[in-house]
C-alpha cells in the first residue's frame, strides 16, 4: 500500500522524464528506421509507416553495406582515433593546469586573463584558418597529425578552461589549507586533491572535447587536407554523397556509423557521474 502511494507520488517525475525522452528520441528513431529502408521508399512513405507494417516493408542493409564496405573506411576510423585521442588528452591536461592557476593562485591580471579566456570562446575558428595555416606552412606542420592536434587543442582550450575553472573554484578552501599544513606542494595538491575530486567534470569535459573533434570536418580539411591517407571518418563519409546531394539517403547509415564511438565514450564515462566524491573527501 505504502509502496503504491510512493509510486503514485513519483508518477509525475516518471511521466515528465519519459515524455521528454520520447520527444528527443523520435527524430533519431526516424533516422534509424530510415537507414534500413531503400531510397525509393524514403520518398514514397513516412518512416513511421514502416514500423506499422514491419513485414510488408522492404528492410535492407544496403545503406550500411555501402557505407561500411567503402574503400578506406578502416583507415578513416584509425585516422579519426589518431586525431581525437591525443587532442582530448592534451587539451584536458593543459586546461586543467591553467584552470588550477586561475582558480587558486593570486597574481595580478588574473581576472583580466580569465575574461580573455572566456571571450576567446566566441572567436569563430573560420577566422583563424588563414593565419594558422600560414604558420603551419612555415613550421612544416601542415598536412601532419601533430599540427591538427595543436590546432584542435587551441580551439578547445577556452571552453575547457572555463568549465574546469568554475568547478575547481567551487572546491572548499579548508581542503587546501589542511593539505598545505601537511606540507603538500601546490602541484601535489593539484594531483592528489583537485584532479580526483573533479572526476565528474573532467569526464564531461573529455566527452565533449572528444566528440567535437571526432565530428570535425573543416579543421581536418584545411590543415590535413582531403587526401585519403590522412582523412578522418567525417571526410570519408561526406565523400559518400555526390556533390549535388545524390544518394543523401546513405547519410542515414553514415550518421549511425560515425555516432557509435562518441556514444561508447559517453557510456564508459557515465560511471564517473556519481554522487558523493566530494562528500567523501571532505570527511576524510
Amino acid at each position: 500500500m505504502r509502496r503504491w502511494r510512493q509510486l503514485l507520488k513519483r508518477l509525475p517525475v516518471h511521466l515528465v522524464v519519459i515524455t521528454l525522452a520520447a520527444i528527443w528520441l523520435t527524430p533519431s528513431l526516424g533516422l534509424l528506421v530510415s537507414s534500413f529502408r531503400p531510397r525509393q521508399d524514403l520518398l514514397a512513405s513516412g518512416w513511421w509507416t514502416a514500423l506499422g507494417r514491419p513485414f510488408a516493408t522492404q528492410w535492407t542493409l544496403a545503406n550500411y553495406r555501402q557505407v561500411l564496405l567503402r574503400e578506406g573506411m578502416g583507415r578513416a576510423f584509425l585516422n579519426s582515433f589518431i586525431i581525437t585521442v591525443p587532442t582530448t588528452l592534451i587539451t584536458l591536461g593543459i586546461a586543467a593546469l591553467a584552470a588550477y592557476a586561475l582558480a587558486w593562485m593570486n597574481f595580478r591580471g588574473r581576472q583580466l586573463l580569465l575574461m580573455t579566456v572566456i571571450g576567446l570562446i566566441v572567436i569563430p575558428l573560420q577566422m583563424t584558418l588563414i593565419p594558422v595555416l600560414r604558420m603551419f606552412n612555415a613550421l612544416k606542420l601542415s598536412g601532419t597529425f601533430p599540427g591538427v592536434w595543436l590546432a584542435h587543442t587551441g580551439y578547445g582550450l577556452p571552453l575547457m578552461i572555463y568549465l574546469l575553472r568554475n568547478f575547481f573554484g567551487a572546491l572548499p578552501r579548508e581542503l587546501f589549507e589542511s593539505a598545505f599544513i601537511d606540507g603538500a606542494s601546490p602541484f601535489t595538491a593539484f594531483l592528489r586533491l583537485v584532479l580526483p575530486l573533479s572526476v565528474p567534470v573532467l569526464a564531461s569535459a573529455a566527452i565533449f572535447q572528444f566528440l567535437w573533434v571526432w565530428n570535425d570536418l573543416l579543421v581536418s580539411l584545411v590543415y590535413l587536407g582531403g587526401f585519403a591517407r590522412v582523412a578522418p571518418l567525417t571526410v570519408q563519409l561526406s565523400n559518400l554523397v555526390g556533390s549535388r546531394g545524390q544518394d543523401w539517403h546513405l547519410l542515414t547509415a553514415a550518421a549511425f556509423v560515425s555516432m557509435i564511438v562518441p556514444m561508447i565514450v559517453f557510456f564508459s564515462l557515465q560511471r564517473y557521474f556519481v554522487r558523493g566524491i566530494l562528500a567523501g573527501a571532505l570527511k576524510g
Binding site: 600560414r134 573543416l218 584545411v222 582531403g226 571526410v235
Partner: peptide
C-alpha cells in the same frame, strides 16, 4: 586527389591565401 566537397571555395581560398 584531394576531395573537399562543397566547402571547396572556402578551403581553396584559404590554402591559397596561406601559400600552399
Amino acid at each position: 586527389v584531394e576531395s573537399v566537397g562543397r566547402e571547396l571555395p572556402g578551403i581553396l581560398a584559404t590554402r591559397l591565401a596561406a601559400g600552399n
